[in-house]
Nucleic acid binder design. Structure first.
Lengths: 164, 164
DNA sequence: CATTTTGCTTAGGGGACCTAACCATTATAC
DNA sequence: GTATAATGGTTAGGTCCCCTAAGCAAAATG
């Protein structure tokens, strides 16, 4: 990729992603799912299988305090549970999704689906395929677990909240 | 698009866009451009030509108070200027970008370019094209100005912060 | 054992959204 | 031609998400 292409791509991302973000967030807000934008991904991950906090922070690319708070918020809503520490290692608290949580995920997905379907309706087939492919690429780029970095408080394994 | 496709697409967007958002925001933060994610688009728009506040709120899909605050923040940084009201209509205050603002935009673009280029480096040509196309579709969908809605405080003309 | 590392939490702060409520200034309606 | 809306903006108050710094307890390591 040439310098110009990189810059164009950067501008595109910087202009478009926040816009999409705002729109989706607004849709969820209006659907009464206030804190969903950040929690949705978490629920998805946790539906797969329970995880520890560090793992979740890594996967989502946020700091551990942030993840701790998010989980606390979701716990209060009854969407997840901090499982009792195991005999193996009493430090870790595995996070599990509850039935309520699964239902919430379903609800949010349905809500988003409705709104997005509306927005996607006027889009032709070719564009939809392009959208799908493009999202796939973004996923590959941003959802992978890049090389670890050094130092405390920096998600040593996996994605980190970009420190320098 | 079938229901299943819509849902899959919704899930993809809900999972991927926030991730990208966080990553990009973190990059800019670490580059010392703290409030850039939201302001970048504004600067881009204003570099084209001055706009009034209402217009900007519409284009960005946010409420007017939000836009007012954003502009105030950017004004404090010296990135934009609230032009003196005209004879024509003393209510409107046109927002103009300053030289400092243009420079900031350039700086942020370069910074983002650097980081993104790094992330995009391991991506093959086909994927890059897909990414580009996909972003184009997103732009078409989310950056267009959809039908107006009714009521005060709701960005009557153009994109609105989704109310119901 | 003393020290470090690891998993997690608490404390404190910032940015970006929102709704509600409030001025001005124009435009409309009797 | 004044009363009444409608329009452009701002202020006030609140939520959510994200961060760094600074703990605390349990495990691993010398």
């Amino acid at each position: 990729m040439t310098r110009d292409q990189a810059r164009e791509c950067a501008r595109d991302i910087l202009q478009i992603i926040p816009l999409v973000m705002r729109t989706v967030a607004a849709q969820l807000r209006s659907a009464g799912e206030l804190p969903a934008p950040a929690h949705f991904g978490l629920l998805s991950i946790l539906c797969e299988r329970p995880r520890m906090l560090t793992e979740l922070a890594s996967l989502q690319g946020v700091s551990m305090p942030t993840m701790s708070n998010s989980i606390s918020a979701m716990e209060e809503r009854g969407w997840v549970r901090r499982a009792a520490p195991t005999e193996q290692d009493r430090r870790v608290a595995m996070i599990e999704v509850t039935t309520t949580g699964r239902a919430a995920l379903e609800r949010v997905a349905r809500s988003a689906e409705t709104h997005l379907a509306e927005m996607l309706a006027p889009v032709d087939v070719t564009s939809r395929r392009r959208l799908h492919n493009g999202l796939g690429v973004l996923r590959k780029i941003f959802a992978s677990e890049p090389a670890a970095s050094a130092g405390r408080q920096r998600n040593r394994r996996g994605r980190r909240p970009y420190v320098a």
